[in-house]
Design a protein around this nucleic acid. Sequence first.
DNA 1: GCACCGATCGCCT
DNA 2: GGCGATCGGTGCT
Length: 204
Amino acid sequence: VPRASRLDREFFARRADDLAPDLLGHVLVRVMPDGRILAGRIIEVEAYIAPEDQASHAKNLHRSPRNEAMYGPPGLSYVYFTYGMHHCMNVVCAAEGVPHAVLIRAIEPLEGLDRMRSLRGGAAPDRDLCRGPGRLCQAMGLDRTLSSVDLTIDPRLGLERGEHFPARVARTARIGVDSAGPRWARRRLRFVWAGHPLVSGPRA
DNA sequence: GCACCGATCGCCT
DNA sequence: GGCGATCGGTGCT
């Protein structure tokens, strides 16, 4: 996988609904403790725009040890544990103190597929390796110990500038946020690489 | 202290 | 399409 450079802090210093579509095509890179490299191209994301966003962990400026990373500088990771068994990864953005974040919902595996298969338990088909926020965290070896890391410099996890980008980006409502109420559940803050076969859920 | 539930997934019918 | 798994976060008593 050719690696031009990492995305820098300036790239992340904007609203989540502005950054989210521009993350499509860039490459999430994970260096495992043994040095093995896992990488995948971002193909599906969701924007969370607290404090007003009632689907965000930081709604109404709610702040706790869990979501503290959301209040940090742009370019941090926010990884949380949910449903008693899954992790989800976000990219923190906007100005420090403004808790915007972009949830990574699916990536196209590029490097380290054999390792991803073993991290996922080996049974599922390849098309499901990194399709969905919980699956991609499992396949990339991501958990809460990788929350609050600086994606612009951390040797374990980062975002590399991509080389291929979507010709068209589709916009839909976010997934799994019905309990936030119709106003925020309906809002089209999910962005997908139009026509990509490995997107989770509705494609348009 | 305690009850409720989740930015999900995999397996069931 | 439906449901159980499984546990930490949250909010109420």
